[in-house]
């Protein structure tokens, strides 16, 4: 069963880079809080990893939602809850 990795910091070295190294195919990534600043510069993801970004936190910061064709899925808080439930466990890399 796969893992949801939650990132809430804008600096990749504060969580994202470590997280990306230990993700497995089928895992999920969710950017929240200041983590949404990474949406525009997300490095290549490991195979079969779905990446999501929290809409409320994007909008709060004046960052455009990912457009059509983006690899990022936009979720609201209800979607955040659904993700936590859909994956077997979560890791908050704060």
């Amino acid at each position: 069963m796969s893992t949801l990795h939650i990132i809430n910091k804008a600096n990749a070295s504060q969580g994202l880079s470590s997280c990306l190294r230990v993700m497995l195919p089928g895992d999920g990534l969710l950017l929240i809080e200041d983590g949404v600043y990474l949406a525009a510069q997300l490095p290549a993801l490991p195979e079969a990893v779905r990446a999501h970004v929290l809409q409320e936190d994007l909008q709060a910061r004046g960052i455009a939602l990912p457009g059509e064709g983006s690899a990022l899925f936009t979720v609201d808080y209800a979607g955040f809850v659904a993700l936590v439930c859909a994956y077997a466990r979560s890791v908050s890399w704060s």
Binding site: F73, A82, C85, A86
Partner: peptide, 12 residues
Amino acid sequence: MQANQPPGNTVV
């Protein structure tokens, strides 16, 4: 795009 949905209507 649609995000992952939880399995059914299970209470978690």
